[in-house]
Amino acid sequence: MQIKTVFAGFGGQGVLMMGYSLAHAAMNEGLHVTYLPSYGAEVRGGTANCTVAVSDEEIASPVASQPDFIVAMNGPSLMAFQTRIAPGGAFFLNSSIVEGRPNRADVTVFEIPAAGIASELGSPRVQNVVMMGAYVKATRLVSADTYLKSLKSILGGRKKAAMDVNRKAFSAGYDSID
C-alpha cells in the first residue's frame, strides 16, 4: 500500500497543517511517511499545498506523479490538480467554497461543506479539521483515534478549549459523509 495525498488551498486555510497532522498520525500508526510542503514564493502568492505519502514500506519518491487523493480547499486547487489525480482516486472538495466539479469521470468525489460547518461551529478557522474528519473516515489511512491523539499533541500547550472545538470539528466532518 502506498497512498499519496495532495492538500491544497489558500494560505491561511490551514492546508499545511492538514498534511502535517496526517503525517503525524500515520507515523504514530507505524507507517512510513513523507510530508512535502510547497514553500517560498508560492506561499507568498497566496496558495499553498503539500503532498503526504503514506506507505507500509519505504517510500521511494516523496513527489507524486499521480496523487491518489486530492483535498481541494478552494477552486483553483481543483483546477490545478484535476488533470493529475490517479484514475480511481478521490477528490475531497470544500463544497462551501469550491463551485466547480472535477471534469473526470474516473474519480470519486466527496463534497464536504467544511467552511460552512466550521462557521456553524463558530470557528471558521477549523474548516481544515472538519475536512480531515471526512478524509479520515473515507480513506481509513489512519484511525480516528490516532488522528485525534496526534492532533492533540500537535496543538500541544494550547488551551483545552482549542482542542474541544477541534474535536467537534473533526466529528462534524466525520459524520458529514457515509
Binding site: V33, T34, L36
Partner: peptide
C-alpha cells in the same frame, strides 16, 4: 537541496 531541507519524515 531545497526539498531535503523542507520535507518532513520520521
Amino acid at each position: 537541496d531545497g526539498m531535503t531541507g523542507q520535507m518532513m519524515e520520521p
